[in-house]
């Protein structure tokens, strides 16, 4: 694995302005998830949520390489993927709040967000479902715009039939598909090692799909690997696979006892918080700390305004749903 040194050196970030944009996105995702959690505890967000906190480098790093013609399929842990693609955070928040102004009018909720206009085919609640959706998108893109389809999924999804079937399907058809396995070490409360045979990456290698295991806490490591993978897929060579090692800093979903984490594990991973790592790197590259502080404050203000607007938005009054398109 190409694990990046945590000692910041200069000249690591190829384009500082671009990384400042990524930094802002990561802050937005983290702040958004904190906000969703606080609103959930107040009873303003319903059902359940699966937060992306800790994994921000993966979604933002990959999204920074995507073009207008590309497509993405995310999971029920999809707020970060949506925001990384540019989904309007107010509309996303309003969806969580079950309001009429939500990105899906309050029909979808946290687990099922979709926005084709933002390239997000959807967030899929069936583990492994995102892989199938992206496989189909790749089939279409291969025949139309030459775009690439990205599937995000977790370590747990590696044991679904969907994974094996779609990977083989995509490889024999040489589909432009990027498979991003976000290995956050657990599927719900179960450590992935206890339910997963062999190495994750090897499952792609056995089908001769180029595969890398990378440091998913370093957004520049993600970007570098994603650049290689996207180039492979876009070049007509078939799918590419990335295993991004990461960690969720919060519970699996709303009701998580957290008892499965060995003592100190969370704290160790938090020392490699992707946002903290990127900030240190930006400072090492000569970015003024005050400028980064300002960014943080701007994002915090933005989120506070979103919260107020969201809570003031109306609920939908009636489900004007038609079963079929005419």
């Amino acid at each position: 694995m190409s694990r990046v040194s945590d000692e910041p050196a200069t000249g690591v970030l190829d384009d500082v302005e671009l990384y400042l944009g990524i930094y802002r996105r990561m802050l937005l995702i983290r702040g958004f998830e904190d906000l969703v959690q606080s609103l959930f505890l107040k009873g303003e967000v319903y059902g359940t949520t699966h937060l992306y906190s800790g994994q921000e480098a993966v979604a933002t790093g990959v999204a920074s390489l995507l073009e207008e013609r590309d497509r993405v399929a995310a999971t029920y842990r999809g707020h970060g993927h949506a925001l990384a693609l540019g989904v309007d955070p107010q509309k996303l928040l309003d969806e969580m709040l079950a309001r009429e102004t939500g990105i899906n009018g309050g029909r979808a909720g946290s687990m099922n967000v979709n926005s084709l206009a933002d390239r997000l085919i959807g967030s899929f609640g069936i583990v492994g479902g995102s892989i199938a959706a992206a496989t189909g998108a790749a089939l279409a893109l291969q025949r139309t715009t030459g775009g690439v389809a990205v599937a995000y999924f977790g370590d747990g999804a590696m044991n679904q039939g969907y994974f094996f079937e779609c990977l083989n399907f995509a490889q024999v058809l040489k589909l432009p598909l990027l498979l991003v396995c976000e290995n956050n070490q657990y599927g719900e409360y179960t450590p992935f090692r206890s339910v997963t045979a062999g190495e994750i990456r090897a499952r792609a290698e056995v089908m001769e799909v180029p595969a890398e295991t990378i440091d998913g806490m370093s957004v520049w490591a993600v970007r570098e690997a994603a650049a290689r993978a996207v180039a492979h897929a876009r070049g007509g060579n078939g799918p590419a696979f990335i295993e991004a090692l990461t960690y969720r800093f919060v519970g699996h979903s709303r009701s998580d006892p957290g008892a499965y984490r060995p003592e100190g594990e969370l704290e160790r991973w938090k020392q490699r918080d992707p946002i903290v790592l990127l900030r240190a790197q930006l400072e090492a590259e000569g970015v003024d700390g005050a400028r980064l502080d300002e960014l943080e404050q701007a994002v915090a203000r933005e989120l506070e305004e979103m919260r107020e607007r969201g809570l003031a938005a109306p609920f939908p009054s009636e489900l004007a749903a038609r079963e079929f398109k005419d």
Binding site: A98, R99, G106, G109, F315, L319, R322, E323
Partner: peptide, 16 residues
């Protein structure tokens, strides 16, 4: 229930 999927928003789900 109606012949549509189940909506998330509480007022919609309750009416459903």
């Amino acid at each position: 229930t109606p012949n549509t999927p189940i909506p998330y928003s509480p007022p919609l789900e309750d009416a459903f």
